[in-house]
Write a protein that binds this DNA or RNA. Structure first.
Lengths: 109, 109
DNA sequence: TGATTATATAAGTGAATAATTATATACTTA
DNA sequence: TAAGTATATAATTATTCACTTATATAATCA
């Protein structure tokens, strides 16, 4: 039954850090260090959130040198559901522009 | 920030029992005993799931004699989000028609 | 009013969760 | 190749979760 597969997806989305991560990468790619800066959270904590998103194939990773960039997995079985949800949430772009202002984004991106 | 309020809503939805309950009452009203039958789960367990849905105002209750009927709260701040999610899920009507066949639905409804 | 039925709440328990600290891996650059 | 940087994983811990059993509340009916 499909509902049994959908529920764990929603569960993964039911965390403000992960939900914000998804909204941030809705239309672009971000690297781990950006998330660490934005959320003011330890690096392992961010990695573990990314891991959960990756475990259910909602995100993709792509290594560029020493950095790893994450993006929404467009091939996900649940991409329509995720997009429908993200469409209801306010843009989080200002978090990235703040980072850029403070210079933190330039170090890796 | 609205994302901080949306995450707990998704968390509540991230459980197959609660998600199925919502899908069942998407277009109609059901009473507690029906959920108990459908999910083959203890009555307190169902009550506790309903409580979580009610705590975030996603559902409404209406007493009719000794029975309590639950329905989707159309006034919910999150009704669009919930509808967008439910729209992606398969219909669960057959669970109710099965109940009717077995006679279990008639006892209360 | 007493017994029955429907539902909610409380208390307890084992499993899952999100964070932390410590450590490992992988890439870069001197 | 050694040191530094970015990221992942492991181990630990406190909290939350979903369920169970037991009990309370509320309505009905004899």
């Amino acid at each position: 039954m499909e509902i049994e597969k959908a529920a764990p997806i929603l569960k993964v989305l039911g965390d403000k850090t992960r939900l914000t991560i998804l909204k941030l990468i809705e239309h672009q790619t971000c690297c781990v260090c950006e998330f660490v800066e934005i959320f003011q959270m330890s690096q392992p904590s961010i990695s573990q959130h990314l891991r959960k998103l990756k475990d259910v194939h909602l995100i993709q990773e792509e290594r560029r040198g020493q950095w790893i960039f994450y993006s929404l997995n467009q091939e996900s079985e649940w991409i329509d559901l995720v997009r429908a949800i993200l469409a209801q949430l306010p843009d989080q772009q200002e978090k990235l522009t703040e980072l850029e202002k403070s210079g933190a984004r330039i170090t890796c991106c």
